[in-house]
């Protein structure tokens, strides 16, 4: 389908091996912070940044890291970038930082990042790892966006709330279905979305 290896590195992460809908990884932040599109987008960008950086560093250091201490080294690398992102967020978008809460430092233990470092960046050249990081990160962000879109529209009746482009969708009399904003709603919506992607992928015969 796509012969360019870099393009396929990107598209794989977004579609075929979408972290959320296909691999079902990184569920904790996915469920927790997708109440609003803004939060989903923020978390997604943070993950893209960390994932890309850590992929690049892991890949460039892959020959120098001894096998035995591979995982601890990866974790330190990831933790470093997460700390940096944390500081950046705190400094420039404090509201978003507060909204994401403890889930920003928890990016460290997001299976996607360690998983990509192990499965891909630890074995592949730097440039491919870069694109793989971007691809998986974009896939993750896409998942967050879809989920937060559904939850915000039904659970809050708005689009892009708490941003400059906020839209009140259904007028003032609308009584939003609050369950979408609740933890229970997050689980149920994600479950249904997963089922939906299963059906779509089966129809399109992508496996």
């Amino acid at each position: 389908m796509i012969d360019n290896v870099y393009l396929s590195d990107i598209s794989r992460g977004i579609l075929k091996e979408n972290p959320i809908f296909r691999l079902v990884l990184g569920m904790c932040p996915t469920l927790a912070i997708t109440v609003l599109v803004k939060n989903g987008l923020g978390m997604g960008l943070a993950v893209i940044a960390v994932l890309t950086c850590s992929n690049v560093v892991v890949s460039s250091l892959r020959r120098y890291i001894p096998e035995q201490v591979r995982i601890p080294c990866y974790i330190v690398i990831i933790a470093t970038f997460v700390t940096i992102i944390e500081m950046v967020l705190q400094a420039f978008v404090p509201a978003l930082y507060d909204a994401l809460g403890v889930f920003v430092p928890l990016i460290v233990v997001n299976c996607i990042i360690l998983g990509r470092a192990e499965a891909f960046a630890g074995k592949q050249p730097v440039l491919r790892s870069l694109f793989d990081g971007i691809g998986s990160g974009l896939g993750f962000t896409l998942g967050l966006l879809v989920l937060s879109l559904v939850r915000e529209v039904f659970g809050n009746g708005t689009l892009l709330a708490e941003t400059k482009m906020a839209v009140q969708l259904f007028g003032a009399n609308f009584e939003p279905m609050r369950i979408f904003a609740q933890p229970a709603g997050a689980f149920i919506v994600l479950g249904l979305l997963l089922a939906l992607t299963n059906i779509v992928f089966k129809r399109l015969q992508i496996d």
Binding site: E175, P176, M177, R178, I179, F180, Q182, A184
Partner: peptide
């Protein structure tokens, strides 16, 4: 339960 959580006041 879904209704209670969604539109509790009603």
């Amino acid at each position: 339960a879904v209704l209670v959580v969604s539109w509790g006041s009603r």
